[in-house]
Amino acid sequence: MASPFLLLAVLALAFAQALAFDPSPLQDFCVADLKSDIFINGFVCKNPKLVMAEDFFSSGLNIAGNTKNKVGSNVTLVNVMRLPGVNTLGVSIARLDYAPYGLNPLHTHPRGTEILTVIEGTLLVGFVTSNPNNTLFLKTLRVGDVFVFPIGMIHFQFNVGEGPAVALAGFNSQNPGLIVVADAVFGSKPPIPVEVLEKSFQVGKDVIEELMAQFK
């Protein structure tokens, strides 16, 4: 008869697999059928007989993104929507471009951990831990440096150099998701009641309304 310890270890392993963020593949691949009307957690598999090399290919990460916007940054994400072959494989990649002093503003990826490598320029990066400590981990990165943002943590990248900056980011999810904090809080549709935001941020109604006006 198996020992209680062994039984608990097997159960723990089973639960760890069951709680994986992206589904594990049960065959060589499951290329996403993006045209299917069937809704599941992920995407329906394309018929393997119809799969081509193009399903595992994407191009364009050599092209700089347009950073002429309010924050001075651009993210070119290659996830399952752009590369159907990553369906069920739990990976995606992104190119990040920053104008001088451009910012990738405070955001979080609800379904994926991010690992970032600086290709050009100098970035100040950081993430904040959860309650009760809300500890900020801050680091200046230069070419060749790598930093990891744990899943769900609010984080940012800020170009502190005088020239443009470029980074590549990998994710352990085919679709890591994105929640930009300011957009979600002050630009939700319909808007969060002003009274809720007043009490949450401990500021007056005029401040909240001014902030909300920036995201209309």
Rank of each mutant, 00 (worst) to 15 (best):
D97G: 01
G163M: 12
T113K: 05
I154R: 13
V128N: 00
N87V: 09
L83I: 04
F171E: 11
N104Y: 00
G90W: 09
G177E: 05
T88A: 03
V125I: 04
A167L: 04
V125M: 07
F57T: 14
F149S: 06
A165Q: 00
L89D: 06
S59D: 04
I119Y: 00
E162H: 02
F149G: 10
P164R: 13
N131E: 14
P132N: 04
N79L: 07
E120V: 01
T76L: 05
K46M: 14
D145C: 04
L116K: 03
Y98T: 06
T88Q: 11
P132V: 10
D55S: 09
G177M: 07
T76N: 07
L61W: 12
K68L: 10
G163Q: 14
N87K: 08
A53E: 08
L106S: 12
V86W: 08
G170T: 13
R111S: 05
V91E: 03
M81W: 09
S92T: 13
N175P: 02
H107R: 03
G163V: 14
E114H: 06
F56W: 04
I119A: 05
T108Y: 04
S58N: 11
I63W: 08
M153D: 00
P84H: 02
S58F: 11
L83N: 00
V166T: 13
L77M: 15
H109T: 03
P164K: 15
G90Y: 12
E120F: 00
S59F: 06
N62E: 10
V125W: 01
K46R: 13
L123I: 00
R142A: 04
S173E: 10
T108E: 08
G126W: 12
G163H: 15
H107N: 10
N79S: 14
M81I: 10
N131I: 06
P132Q: 10
Q174R: 11
V143P: 00
L83E: 02
N62R: 08
L136R: 13
P164F: 03
G121V: 00
L138H: 09
I119T: 04
A167H: 02
P176S: 08
Y101K: 14
D97Q: 04
N74C: 13
K139D: 01
I119K: 01
P176A: 10
K68Y: 09
F149T: 13
V125P: 02
V80Q: 11
K139Q: 14
E54L: 15
N133L: 05
V91A: 07
V78Y: 02
N47H: 12
I154K: 12
A167I: 01
T129Y: 03
P100E: 12
T76Y: 09
Q157A: 14
V71M: 13
S173D: 11
A165R: 03
G163N: 15
N159K: 04
F137S: 09
C45D: 08
K46W: 10
L96C: 06
T140K: 15
A165W: 00
K70G: 03
T140G: 04
Y101L: 15
F56S: 04
G90R: 11
H155Q: 14
G177Q: 11
G102A: 08
L83T: 02
L77N: 03
V128P: 01
P105I: 09
C45Y: 06
S73P: 08
N69E: 06
I93Q: 09
F171C: 14
F149M: 15
G177A: 04
A167F: 01
L61R: 15
V80F: 11
L89A: 08
